[in-house]
């Protein structure tokens, strides 16, 4: 019934403090849902399946869908190493394992780029539930 094999998470120290586990100490979950779910967590800034909304503002989040996996992986590794400047991405890349970075890069590279729009705002109704 259960097709997947788990390389179960292995935290080197059971006594690791609640704040802060180093990504080096962790074996990446090999569950097939692990990467799609982690990738979906990026959508708050990079859009559903890596299709960032084009807002027309000067600075937009980078679209990830259909990007080269080599490029994405290198970018993330550079953020992780701190060799590439960023505002938030170093915080994110440092929390991921190199394996997760590799898999995320592959995942986004395989997504079909599509145009995504932000929903159109509307007037708040006088009673906003009927």
């Amino acid at each position: 019934m259960n097709p997947f094999i788990i390389r179960l998470i292995l935290i080197s120290s059971v006594a690791a403090p609640v704040l802060g586990i180093a990504a080096e100490d962790i074996v990446t979950s090999a569950h097939p849902a692990h990467i799609p779910t982690l990738a979906a967590s990026c959508s708050a800034c990079h859009g559903t399946l890596g299709n960032a909304v084009k807002s027309g503002s000067v600075v937009d989040a980078t679209p990830l869908a259909g990007e080269s996996d080599v490029y994405l992986e290198q970018r993330l590794l550079d953020f992780r190493a701190g060799t590439r400047e960023s505002t938030v991405m170093h915080h994110h890349a440092k929390g991921l394992t190199p394996e997760e970075i590799h898999q995320l890069a592959l995942f986004f590279s395989r997504q079909e780029p599509e145009v995504r729009v932000a929903p159109t705002p509307q007037k708040l109704k006088a009673v906003n539930h009927e």
Partner: peptide, 13 residues
């Protein structure tokens, strides 16, 4: 009928 990911990871900004 399958088991969920035993080690989820996510981000917050």
């Amino acid at each position: 009928g399958r088991l969920p990911d035993p080690a989820p990871v996510f981000a917050n900004t």
